[in-house]
Amino acid sequence: MQKPIISDGALLKVYLEGNESALETLVKRHKSRIFTSIYLLVNDRYLAEDIFQETFIKIIHCLRTGKYKHEDKFLPWALRIARNLSIDSIRQKGRMPCIVTDSEGNDIFSFLNIKEDSREQIVIEREEHASLHHFINQLPAEQKEVLVLRHYADLSFKEIAEMTGNNINTCIGRMHYALINLRKMMQKSVVYVK
């Protein structure tokens, strides 16, 4: 029989009653989404590790002092904290991503379904992974933020709008441009390699 999944709210309740392992379950459940989002926002693994720790230390503090009131919305709340810490950090370091625009050429996506286990294929996949990461970081900050929060943090556009204080249509529009710009950058890179 499959084990029932305990909700985040129930885990938080149990944690506040003194069960330490409930927090470990929450961290395990959400660590990848939270860490990937932080990492892509700040573009620095060591800094991302610090912010990830700081996020949970802040979460623990809020829980212990009774400041958490969102019961069933743990992840959006945790991501809001992570996002704010990431933005503070970017501001402190003065990192301002810039945009790379426009090109025409072949579509890299059409090659992506080809899966081979050859060493060459592994190298290609690693390069694609590195390129994609690089391209995400070339997006304008506001587009990158929506892309990261929608795709990696898995927040709805409504939640992103609430979190960032923007109109939902603005958020969807930014996602639209982010996807278009990413595609253009990928196409440009294929043309360059050729």
């Binding site: 330490e20 927090l23 470990e24 860490f35 720790q53 992506l112 694609e128």
Partner: peptide, 22 residues
Amino acid sequence: QLLNTIKEEPHPTSVAIISEHS
């Protein structure tokens, strides 16, 4: 599908620090 190829994990030390702090 392409974006899904990026999935990062925090270092186990980070997770251990959080548990210790808790």
